[in-house]
Computed example of a mutant assay.
Amino acid sequence: MTTAHRPTFDPARGKDAQRGPAYHQRLLPAHTQLKVRKPGQGGDADNAPRDLRAELLRAEAVHFAKIKGEPIPEAEGEDEEDPEAKRRRVLEESRDVDADSENDEEDSSEDDSDDDEDETAELQRELEKIKRERAEKREQEEREKAAAEEEEREHDIALGNPLLNPKSDFHVKRRWDDDVIFKNQARGTEDKGKKKEFVNDLLRSDFHKRFMRLVESSRFLQPKQS
């Protein structure tokens, strides 16, 4: 007798987990840190005065220092430094970096000009070489084409006239009924007049009759045994 209809008063209980008690995800502590406004989000940090020129010059100085391979370390106590003194210091650093970069640019421009001249001369030589190779290839193709045309012309002269070429074949290579309008009109006329019908008897079928005629003819062809 089934017990599916009976209620379960003592349901199955899961075993204790080996790693300790389990908690639901929503029971875990959340939102444990207080969010504050960052610069650019309309908080108190946006109301503080900023020296944008000094920041720009500082960024440029860091950029040129990275190009030269000498990274500028961050100045200690930068926040406590007077904005005017900071501005003057950044201007002096940027002026020195600009002077060094101008000298480097002059030297590099001279080197670049020499390199450009060498590259231009090399490209000119390569271009002349390519043009010369193309001209030689074009002349060779023209010579081959002229030789092929001359050979074909001589072949036509030698074999084109059938009177001068006794080996030529004068037979017309076509069928006698090529110019007939209607073709294959007699196909299937050999069975004309024969009545085809199905006979539901293996002994009276056409196949059995042909087979018996073949057997009878083979009897007469067999040699007599002495």
Rank of each mutant, 00 (worst) to 15 (best):
F170N: 04
G160C: 14
L159T: 15
A146Y: 14
A158M: 03
E151I: 06
D201V: 01
K167I: 01
T189E: 04
L163N: 09
V180Y: 09
R175C: 13
K173P: 02
R174I: 05
A147D: 08
L159M: 10
R174G: 03
E190V: 13
T189A: 06
K196P: 03
R153I: 11
F170P: 05
G160R: 15
A147R: 15
D191A: 12
P162Q: 07
A148P: 02
P166R: 10
L202K: 06
N165M: 07
N161Q: 08
A147H: 13
H155D: 06
F198S: 13
T189N: 03
D178H: 06
L163F: 02
D156I: 12
K145P: 01
K183D: 05
L164P: 00
K194S: 05
G193Y: 06
P166N: 08
K192Y: 12
L163P: 00
T189H: 05
K192Q: 13
V199H: 00
N184I: 04
H155I: 11
D156T: 07
D201F: 00
A148K: 12
K192R: 15
E149H: 09
N165I: 10
K167V: 04
S168G: 07
V199G: 03
K194T: 07
I157G: 01
K183S: 15
E150I: 05
G193M: 15
D178C: 11
D169Y: 12
A148D: 05
F182R: 15
K194F: 10
D169T: 08
F170W: 10
L203S: 00
N161E: 07
N165V: 04
I181G: 14
F182C: 03
D191E: 06
D201I: 00
S168F: 07
Q185D: 06
L163S: 13
D177V: 04
F182S: 14
R153A: 15
P166E: 08
V199Y: 00
K145G: 05
Q185T: 15
F182Y: 13
I181S: 10
K196T: 13
V172A: 15
G193R: 15
Q185Y: 08
S205Q: 03
R204Q: 05
D191M: 06
R187E: 10
D156G: 00
E152N: 05
K167P: 00
R153S: 07
G188S: 10
K167D: 09
K195T: 14
H155A: 14
K192L: 06
I157L: 10
S205V: 01
F170H: 02
W176Y: 02
F198C: 14
G188K: 08
A147E: 14
E197D: 05
E197P: 01
Q185W: 08
E154V: 07
K195H: 10
A186M: 14
I181V: 11
L159C: 09
E197S: 08
A147G: 04
K173R: 07
K167Q: 02
D201A: 01
D177C: 04
L164Y: 02
G193C: 05
D179H: 14
P162I: 09
P162R: 08
V172I: 13
E190K: 13
S168I: 11
S205C: 10
E151A: 11
K196Y: 05
L203T: 01
N200I: 00
F182M: 15
R175Q: 09
N200P: 01
D201E: 02
F198I: 12
E152V: 03
R187G: 05
K167T: 13
H155Y: 09
V180G: 04
E190D: 12
K192V: 12
L159W: 10
T189R: 04
N161I: 03
